[in-house]
Every structure is written in structure tokens, then in C-alpha cells.
Design a protein around this nucleic acid. Structure first.
Length: 544
RNA sequence: GCGCCCGUAGCUCAGCGGAUCAGAGUAUUGGCCUCCGAAGCCAAGGGUCGUGGGUUCGAAUCCCGCCGGGCGCGCCA
């Protein structure tokens, strides 16, 4: 088992800080940073600067004291220390330490970057959750990419993840869908006299009407048919996008099982409700919401708030200790009240439950202009449009290359460019290139693990090895911060390091020892690229 | 009006609760294939990090004001 140099240094640093400044247990004091400038070493600590402030002493002297302490705790042969600048302690890893990771990756194989937990936690990621009233739009695409990647990242941290899709199959929107299809079946068009008030205008309504063979007067049959039709259509798109769900949860089941009534009862018994204007209200403001919410309308029916709370209560009851909901920022308003409703039930659900990953809107640019509508959906661009234009890998990679809360401009022309520069192909190409080297070589992989890595001495080789070594940390942080985009950026960097190396040095050299060591490095690159792409749901082709 | 988010190179965006943080891609310009895949590499130009204050030894990063943009503020879902 290879050592984890960062962990070793971290541990030594913590002990040193504790020794020099007992009681200073603040996490950030003993934080290790990765300097951007290579001349500043591989890791650096600003502990001396931070401690100097509190102790009113000279930072460089303090750094010197810390260095002595660290060296006493740090096993030999890992790194050398120096004090630079105003008092930074910089660590330079020994070459052998840097290349050690290669052996580790080859041993771990597909497990590299993955954590095995003794006690996995049950986690749920809920995403897409589109109501079956139309084709999936690009925002759903962003949710699908985000949710699936988040699930994969959390799984990589050793937890057990359930991917769930929640939808409303019985509400007012579904009624409008049924009425729209019925009207189409009767030959009406949007805008005609008699067209339903909140009817759906998209062309797909006509498709459903044409496919429906039953009685035009049987609204229940039309509703059932239309829901099944659109659910199927959505599933086809999701399948092509490579997203699979473990559970489809129906809102109607919450009513059928009495869960909605039970929540109303629970809220009432909590003492946090009151009657006003003939309606039943919940004091969600007691839990951080900006205004109280109606539970039961004056006409006796419930607001959507109730099934929402009931649904999230089932998540907790089903044993999901952690829940991540991926939603568009237009659903922003629901987060505070769902959390408030869960708190009011007083069932021991933690305060921040559930987590939300909100993403901002996606704008689609094509041919220098913004695309706002699609023929099929009418008022919006669909996920299907994107898939048809640029393919699954490009859609996934692009949608994951931005922070979720950043506005997104999807440049279709850039994404579909296969002969020009394209961020997706850049990473995939690196993978295909490594594979190509191995094909050319044609040797036996099992020997690579015994390669003498000490012959890898060039800066590019050490940089590449170190980059590979960062992968587990990148994955862990992306999972912790719920930010898959950092994996996409990491892969870009790894691919860049490899391309640069490939152009500078020949892999298949005459010298057998050197060749074997370089191939071992390449094998580690390939494994890391493949694992990273897999986390994002993007394929790692052997040929392109 | 109130709440949350965003404002970084011509364009699209990273910058992990400060320091060793002015970065990547793209676009533009100039080099590199008789040799493992040129969907690649090497290099150049390009930004008072929206703006004005504050805190600090140090601010793109933290705090406050302002300007600009997005989303949300229903007895709709």
C-alpha cells in the first residue's frame, strides 16, 4: 500500500501545531494548500503566519520552530521543508514519493479514487422529477447530468445511493394535459374557441391525440394514456442520456396511502397551525420561512405544500440519512417551507434536511443566436434537441463543466464541433491516445506493477504523477461540496498534462526499464481518466 | 419592495471561509507531423477581478453601500 503523502504531512503538521501552540485546534491553521506556482513546492502551510497574529511573535521564527517540530513527526523520505516569503512553510515531495502513486493506482485499478466505508450511509438523490406534461427541457437535462454525477460521486465515497424520480400523476396540470389532448382529438387547436384555458400548446399534444385510440369522451382514459405516453417518451430520452433511476415515486400514492392526511394531522398536533380566513395555516416562520404557509385551503383541499412535506417525510422514514434534491432555481421558494414543514412535524429530522442543489437556467446558443423554442415542445428547447445536435457525451460534459449556480450558455456549435477544439474530445482524446500507445506496444499489463519507477525523473513525469495523486482528493471534495464541475476541470488538467508529456517524450523507447516505467505511468493516467469520465457519465473511448 | 444567486480577458467560465491568485478554454497571431493518433503540442498579445468604502501585515475571495442581471416572493403546481 502506497503512502498518502498529503495525509502524512497533514498529520505531522497537526501534531507540530499542537506542540508549539497547544489549544490552537482551528482546522484552518493546520490546513495544507497546494501552491499554484511550482517553485513554491508541492504543499504549503500558512500556520506560522496565522499563529503569529495571535501570539504576537515573529512569523519566520515561529515557522522555524514549527519546521523542527514537523520534521520530528514526519517519517523520513517523504518531503523536504523550507521557510519562504513572510513565513510560509513549503513542502517539497521527494521524487519517489511522487511516483509511488503510480504503483498504487495500478494495484487499485478501478477502485482508485473510490472509498470503501465500513458503514455505508443510505443516501438519496432526487432529480429530474419532471411532471408528465411534456418533453424534458434543457433544464431537466442539467438536472439529469448533475443528479447522476452527484449520485456517482457519493457512491465513490462509499455510501449507498438511491436515484429517485418523483412526479405528479394526478393534479391540476395533469387534468390540463388530458383536456388538451381531448381538445386536439376533437380537432381543436390552441387558441380556438373551446380550447382549454390552461391547455398545453406543444405539437406533442397532437401526437398523443393521434396515438390515442379510445373514446374521445373518456377523459380518465385519455389522462391515463397521455401520462403513460409522456412518461415513456421521457424515459426514452433519459435512457439515451444514460441515466437510470432506482425509484419512481408517484405523488398520487401519498394520497392513496393516507400519508397526506397523516401529515396534516401531525402538523395540527404540533400546535404550530392556526385558522385564518377559513384556511389552515402553518407557522413556517418559526422555522426560518419568510411567511406562514397555507396547509388546507378554504375550499377544503390541500396546497401542494402538504404532499411535498409528506413526500420528504417518507424519505426520512425510508432511512435516507442524507438527501440531495437537484432542482432548478425557479423552485427556490420551496426549500424553506419543506424544511420548515419537516421541522414542525417534530420527528427528529435534522434542521438542514434535505440538501438542495439549485441550478440556474440554461440558455442555448446556435449559429450565434439564442434558441428559445423547439418545434415539438413549442415554448422551450428540449433535452432531445440537445442530444440530437451534439450527442450524449458532449451534453453531459458541457452541462457539468459549470458550477450549478452559475448561469449557463450552451454553445451548440462548440459542442458539436468534432474537427475543431472541443473540451469533451480533449479529455476523451487523451484516453484514446493512451489506449493507442498500449495497442502499439502489445505487451503484458501485469508486469507494469513491478516497474522500477525511479527512472521517471523529468518534470513532466513528476507533474503527471502528482496530478494523478490528486484524484481521490478531487473526488472527495466534489462529493462533499456537491460540485461535480471540479471533476470536469480536473480531467481537463490531467488530459493537458498527458498531452504535454506525450508530445515531449516518446513512451515506447528502446530502453526497457524506462519504457516499462513510462507505460506504468500511462496505465495510471488511463485508469484515472476512465474513472473520472465514468463519474461524469461520459464514455472513455479507446478509439475516436 | 423583500429574500437568495450572479457580475473575473472580445466570448464561455475556473479560482477550494484571505497570503505563493490574475487563471483555463475559445477567439487572434507565430512556430511544431519521414518518428507512439496534429481531435494534439510550444509560444505571444489580451483583464484597474461591476463600483465605492471597510476590516487586515495581506482582499477576486470576508463585511457594508451602490449599479447591472437572474430566480423566488399565491388559499397555482
Amino acid at each position: 500500500m502506497a503512502v498518502d503523502p498529503k495525509a502524512e504531512i497533514q498529520a505531522a503538521l497537526r501534531k507540530a501545531v499542537e506542540k508549539v501552540a497547544p489549544g490552537q485546534t482551528e482546522e484552518r491553521i493546520s490546513a495544507l494548500e497546494r501552491p499554484r506556482q511550482a517553485s513554491h513546492g508541492d504543499y504549503s502551510s500558512s500556520a506560522a503566519l496565522q499563529l503569529a497574529k495571535a501570539r504576537k511573535s515573529n512569523p519566520r521564527e515561529l515557522a522555524s520552530t514549527l519546521v523542527d517540530a514537523i520534521q520530528a513527526f514526519l517519517p523520513p523520505g517523504i518531503a523536504t521543508l523550507s521557510i519562504e516569503g513572510p513565513g510560509f512553510i513549503n513542502f517539497r515531495l521527494d521524487k519517489a514519493t511522487k511516483t509511488d502513486v503510480i504503483r498504487h493506482v495500478l494495484m487499485a485499478g478501478k477502485g482508485y479514487g473510490y472509498v470503501k466505508k465500513e458503514k455505508p450511509v443510505s443516501v438519496q438523490v432526487e432529480f429530474v422529477s419532471a411532471n408528465p406534461t411534456g418533453p424534458l427541457h434543457v433544464g431537466h437535462g442539467r438536472q439529469a447530468a448533475l443528479g447522476d454525477a452527484l449520485a456517482a460521486l457519493i457512491e465513490a465515497q462509499g455510501d449507498k445511493v438511491t436515484r429517485e424520480f418523483y412526479y405528479n400523476d394526478a393534479g391540476a396540470q395533469i387534468q390540463n394535459l388530458a383536456l388538451s389532448v381531448q381538445a386536439r382529438k376533437r380537432g381543436l387547436k390552441p387558441g380556438d374557441a373551446g380550447w382549454p384555458k390552461d391547455g398545453y400548446a406543444g405539437e406533442y399534444i397532437q401526437d398523443i391525440a393521434a396515438a390515442y385510440q379510445g373514446s374521445v369522451d373518456d377523459l380518465d382514459a385519455i389522462r391515463t394514456f397521455a401520462v403513460a405516453y409522456l412518461r415513456n417518451e421521457q424515459d426514452i430520452d433519459l435512457r439515451e442520456f444514460g441515466v437510470k433511476f432506482d425509484v419512481y415515486y408517484l405523488e398520487s400514492s401519498l394520497y392513496a396511502d393516507g400519508k397526506v392526511d397523516a401529515v396534516v394531522k401531525g402538523l395540527t398536533e404540533s400546535g404550530k397551525t392556526y385558522e385564518k380566513d377559513g384556511a389552515l395555516w402553518l407557522r413556517t416562520t418559526d422555522y426560518g420561512d419568510d411567511k406562514d404557509r397555507v396547509v388546507r385551503k378554504s375550499d377544503g383541499t390541500y396546497t401542494y405544500f402538504v404532499p411535498d412535506v409528506a413526500y420528504h417525510l417518507t424519505k426520512w422514514r425510508r432511512g435516507f440519512v442524507k438527501v440531495v434534491n437537484v432542482q432548478g432555481s425557479d423552485h427556490f421558494g420551496t426549500t424553506a417551507r419543506v424544511r420548515a414543514g419537516l421541522q414542525a412535524l417534530n420527528t427528529g429530522i435534522p434542521q438542514g434536511y434535505p440538501d438542495y442543489v439549485m441550478h440556474s437556467m440554461v440558455r442555448v446558443m446556435r449559429g450565434g443566436e439564442e434558441v428559445k423554442i423547439s418545434k415539438r415542445a413549442g415554448s422551450y428547447v428540449t433535452l432531445r434537441d440537445l442530444l440530437d445536435w451534439v450527442g450524449r457525451d458532449a451534453v453531459r460534459f458541457f452541462l457539468l463543466s459549470r458550477r450549478a449556480d452559475a448561469d449557463f450558455v450552451f454553445d451548440v456549435d462548440l459542442a458539436r464541433a468534432q474537427t475543431e477544439e472541443n473540451p469533451v474530445y480533449y479529455v476523451q482524446y487523451a484516453h484514446a491516445r493512451v489506449c493507442s500507445v498500449f495497442n502499439q506496444w502489445g505487451g503484458n499489463f501485469s508486469n507494469l506493477g513491478e516497474a522500477d519507477l525511479s527512472v521517471l525523473k523529468s518534470d513532466r513525469e513528476l507533474t503527471l504523477a502528482q496530478r494523478i495523486g490528486e484524484f481521490p482528493e478531487v473526488v472527495a471534495e466534489a462529493a462533499r461540496e456537491l460540485s461535480p464541475h471540479s471533476v470536469a476541470f480536473y480531467l481537463r488538467s490531467l488530459a493537458a498534462d498527458f498531452h504535454s508529456y506525450y508530445n515531449a517524450e516518446r513512451i515506447l523507447v528502446e530502453d526497457e526499464a524506462l519504457r516499462t516505467a513510462r507505460l506504468a505511468l500511462c496505465a495510471a493516467v488511463r485508469q484515472t481518466l476512465a474513472s473520472g469520465l465514468s463519474l461524469l457519465g461520459v464514455s472513455a473511448p479507446e478509439k475516436m
